[in-house]
Simulated scan of single mutants.
Amino acid sequence: MFKIYFLLALVPTMVLSDVSFTACPNGAPTPTILKVNDCMADECNLVAGEHISAYASGIYSPTDSATATAHISVFLGGLDLGFELPPHLEDACSVGIEGGCPLIADEAFSYLLSSDSLDVPARGVAVEIEVGLTGDGGVELVCLRFNAVVN
């Protein structure tokens, strides 16, 4: 009986687990926490054509910014596969940043990238997905990379 309660107590913790990520080579700030769909591993399994939700919190902008433009890149063995973010998701101030813009330097904010359909040019192989936000004057506000397999 105790084992059942113990397992039930762990389920919410497992569901809310963070995704492992690394900083981008450009040296941009990273969030404190990243959650991608229901992924609880070092490599997320995503399904092409299905919904993707990536939530990053604890982001501290290095500068004030009235704008924030989202970008995503998908890499296979270091080669950029040319993934293009749908245009309606590019303006992160209106779609994604909780509370919108402007962003204030050194104040925490959160960002939610939510798309009804994920479609990347590589299927069934391990890729590295980079998600970032660029602010006024090209300043990198946040950037991270995580591993995934898209089936």
Rank of each mutant, 00 (worst) to 15 (best):
M1Y: 13
Y5S: 15
L8I: 12
L8N: 08
L10D: 06
V11A: 12
M14L: 15
M14G: 15
L16W: 10
V19N: 01
S20F: 10
F21I: 01
T22Y: 01
T22K: 00
A23H: 07
A23K: 03
P25V: 06
I33L: 06
L34F: 09
K35C: 07
D42R: 11
V47Q: 14
V47A: 15
G49P: 03
A54Q: 00
Y55G: 09
G58N: 07
Y60A: 08
D64I: 12
A66I: 13
A68T: 03
T69F: 08
A70L: 04
I72M: 08
I72H: 01
V74S: 03
F75H: 06
F75C: 13
E84Y: 08
P86S: 03
P87F: 10
H88N: 13
L89F: 15
D91S: 04
C93W: 04
G96N: 04
A105L: 08
S110Y: 04
Y111T: 05
S114N: 14
L118D: 05
D119V: 05
V120D: 13
A122W: 01
I129E: 02
V131C: 05
V131H: 03
G135L: 01
L141C: 08
F146G: 02
F146R: 01
V150S: 05
V150A: 11
N151L: 12
